[in-house]
Amino acid sequence: MIELKGLRKQFGEAVVLDGIDLTIKKGEIVVIIGPSGTGKSTLLRCVNFLEQPTAGEITVGDLTVDVNRARKADILELRRQTAFVFQNYALFANKTALENIAERLLVVDRWPKAKAHERAREILRRIGLEDKADAYPASMSGGQQQRVGIGRAMAAGAEVILFDEPTSSLDPEWVDEVLSLMKQLARERQTMLLVTHEMSFARDVADRVIFIDGGRIVEQGPPSEIFYHPRDPRTRDFLQKILATHQV
């Protein structure tokens, strides 16, 4: 379970997150949508302190952190309990697919090498890239790299996986293989919090869709409600614009 209470983020004078309250149950799949520049990515990045939040409280699993009193150890623990999938994959360029997945188990969880590699191989099987175990990121397609990126997040056994626009940098031909891997994770009831522009994914897979504008949650509910019966005019306006360009 993760819970955010009154999460605020300011860059200087600019308020990017204006008090976000959000609870996500174990196994829930939550998609955040909203206009660009409204703090969707910042929200994800605040959850694991890639951005230092300005105020608020973050709970992940058994760990509750007041962001202004967070010690180094709290931040490391918070990051251990969460996993992150980046828009541009962000694989370690000096490590093979296998090593990218095993890295966290080896270095952060201090597993013995044989055990970490065995687990990494198992994940490679699940993401369908067994034959790429010894390939370096530079030799893989964008789709394969992002699947390894998701595999790296799976290795953690984290409470929640945070996806930050995981298909936005992909060539169209690779989007489907990444989405289908994400759907597979959703079927396994991996808790997921996603920022994405893939509206069909949100409609078909999400348990809950959250519309954010101006750093606040404007409206949230099951996809059928948000997509087909939005209450707030801002939600309606946004959906009209995005549905004109994206197929749902």
């Binding site: 890639l50 490391l76 992150f84 541009n88 962000a90 370690f92 966290r104 270095v107 790296r152 953690a156």
Partner: peptide, 22 residues
């Protein structure tokens, strides 16, 4: 690439581990 730093931090690496290994 700066994003590799973020990736390393996101999996819970310390700054020292990030420097040494990545």
């Amino acid at each position: 690439d700066r994003s590799q730093t973020e990736a390393a931090l996101s999996i819970g690496m310390t700054n020292g581990q990030l420097m040494r290994r990545i």
